[in-house]
Nucleic acid binder design. Structure first.
Length: 318
DNA sequence: TCCCAGGGAGGAT
DNA sequence: ATCCTCCATGGG
């Protein structure tokens, strides 16, 4: 990480390939179609996100130069206040969110399974994104049920714009943060449905928000639990079933054993590993955990991304 | 008009 | 345990 002197609330720095554990494909990572946060903004080859870091809203833009293996990620950021810890904290934030310390080479070497390894070349450097905001991650996961990615993203944006804190950055741009738990907890399902088009998901989203606001549910605490124990708690929540639970476990809590099985992954995995036999989704998820262990989440990510980009045909056969 | 989308809940087998 | 149906909403 090479620091360039910061001015006021703006800063620039670089992340080099030597700072990252293995290859990185920034574009593939950010648009891997699977995250539990609203899609980043894109302009040409640069990607922008807004996130609250240590209580201060920060807007940052990334651009990768060079190759997937030898690269430089140029980071420029702007915040609402000038703080000396911007660079180290934003750097830590990016390491978490983009999974920069995941040992990708180990993943590539550990799984000779040809059905999976076929995806390694075209998707080399794809990393699993994590959420910095657990509440946001859980709500986004809940919105994903029986929904399309586009509509889910649209609803999330509506939610932010209607109920989130408005931020005007020093560069004159306007943005909205994800709403606080307390704000959503006070809403009535009818209103939430009307303003965000989230349909029947409104009620459970509010119920869960109230549980968090009251302290009955502590998301941070779930990080300490095993996959089984955290799952047990999550599955008790209204609007949370196996897929949403795994989604939050993986993208929110960073539990890499979790492999959310949505309709796509279900189709892909049953086709690849069960010869099209009828297998339930929970069994498919258990199969992935069993086969890929601590890399189940990554296996799921690569299969999903590959299938959506190139179709399932190229994945067929060894 | 019908079907589907990063499913879940509740009830019936 | 597994299977059915309904659930809001918008896009194709």
């Amino acid at each position: 990480m090479t620091e360039i002197p910061s001015v006021d609330a703006a800063c620039e720095f670089e992340i080099q390939s030597s700072d990252v554990n293995g290859p990185l494909n920034l574009e593939e990572t950010i648009f891997s179609a699977q995250t539990s946060e609203p899609a980043w903004l894109r302009r040409n080859d640069s990607f922008t996100d807004i996130e609250e870091i240590n209580g201060i809203p920060v807007k940052y833009t990334l651009r990768q130069q060079g190759s997937v293996d030898e690269f430089l990620v140029k980071v420029s950021c702007i915040a609402t206040q000038a703080k000396e810890w911007f660079v180290p904290n934003l750097n830590a934030h990016l390491n978490l969110v983009l999974g920069l310390q995941d040992d990708l080479c180990h993943f590539y070497e550990a799984f000779a399974d040809p059905k999976l390894s076929r995806t390694f070349v075209p998707l080399r450097g794809l990393r699993l994104m994590r959420a910095a905001n657990l509440y946001e991650s859980l709500v986004l996961s809940m919105l994903s049920q029986n929904n399309s990615a586009i509509l889910m993203n649209r609803s999330a944006r509506l939610l932010m714009k209607r109920y989130g804190r408005h931020i005007r950055f020093p560069d004159g741009t306007d943005h909205y943060l994800f709403p606080s738990v307390e704000t959503v907890a006070k809403l009535k399902p009818r209103e939430l449905r009307r303003t965000t088009s989230i349909g029947y998901r409104a009620k459970p989203v509010i119920q869960v928000s109230r549980m968090i606001a009251s302290g009955d549910l502590r998301l941070e605490q779930l990080k300490e639990y095993s996959y089984d124990k955290a799952s047990e708690i999550l599955l008790e929540l209204p609007g949370v079933g196996p897929k949403v639970s795994d989604c939050f476990l993986l993208y929110g809590l960073g539990n890499l054993q979790a492999a959310p099985v949505d309709i796509w992954i279900h189709r892909i995995v049953t086709k690849l590993y069960f010869r099209g036999r009828r297998v339930s989704r929970p069994k498919t998820a258990a199969f992935l955990r069993d086969k890929f262990g601590d890399w189940a989440g990554y296996a799921q990510l690569y299969l999903f991304d590959f299938a959506r980009k190139y179709g399932t045909r190229d994945l067929k056969l060894t």
